[in-house]
């Protein structure tokens, strides 16, 4: 060994600290991912498929005019919720006793359940218009009323499946199906809904749709 050569003893790296740093990195990634999908780009957040509000990343356009399902239930965000109801309702626990009211809600979040006659709504909204008169703030709303029409603007529906009659238009009218008590199924729908009497309309984008024997998937396009 030459005289000027120095023997060095290398200590082992602190593996525990390395693991801790990696774990903190993973934690921050998860935290920022949740933050991004809830605050920065919430519309991408809800839809895990190919459909994104405003633009299409492979989603299929859908426009249906069918007879309504026996009952319909969602728990979702609705950008604009418009309805005309009969009877009393509650906002922030306060009863509003009106014969007939036109209600519009912005940024509604909660449950909506309706059948042919009644609508049950329970959730929160940031702004509500009652016969055009606005009330702002984080408002808890509760309705259990008869209604004459409902409009849901920009909401997410995980799936809908029932035997229906009517017209289903898919992929910018490239596929038009006339159903007669045949199976109608959509998965991961994002868009608008209108229910007025025996009219039930959906207009938006969908990840997968089946109408009778026709099945269209966004992945297949």
């Amino acid at each position: 060994m030459p005289e000027d050569e120095v023997e060095a003893v290398l200590s082992k790296p602190k593996r525990k600290h390395r693991w801790m740093i990696m774990l903190i990195g993973v934690f921050l990634f998860v935290f920022l991912f949740v933050f991004y999908t809830s605050f920065v780009n919430p519309n991408q957040g809800q839809i895990t498929g190919n459909v994104v509000k405003g633009d299409v990343l492979g989603g299929v356009s859908i426009n249906v005019n069918l007879d309504p399902p026996e009952s319909f239930k969602i728990d979702s965000n609705v950008d604009k919720f418009d309805m005309k109801i009969k009877g009393a309702f509650f906002i922030e626990g306060k009863k509003y006793d009106l014969d007939s009211s036109s209600i519009v809600m912005d940024n509604f979040n909660g449950k909506i359940n309706f059948n042919d006659e009644k609508v049950i709504v329970e959730g929160k909204t940031s702004k509500i218009f009652i016969e055009g008169i606005p009330i702002s703030g984080k408002l808890k709303v509760k309705f259990d009323n008869e209604y004459s029409y409902l409009k849901l603007g920009n909401f997410y529906l995980k799936s809908l499946d029932y035997d229906a009659s009517g017209i289903v238009r898919l992929d910018d009218d490239k596929v038009v199906v006339n159903l007669n008590e045949e199976r109608f199924n959509v998965k991961k729908f994002y868009g608008d809904l209108e229910k007025r009497g025996s009219i039930f309309r959906l207009n938006g984008l969908v990840d997968e749709a089946s109408a009778g024997l026709i099945n269209v998937k966004s992945d297949d396009r």
């Binding site: 949740v34 999908t37 605050f39 957040g45 965000n77």
Partner: peptide
């Protein structure tokens, strides 16, 4: 993370399925 999810739900925002 759990408290953050509760906060998101409480403020009426959407929780991403994947997240």
């Amino acid at each position: 993370l759990a408290l953050f999810l509760i906060y998101i739900k409480y403020t009426g925002r959407i929780i991403n399925d994947t997240a």
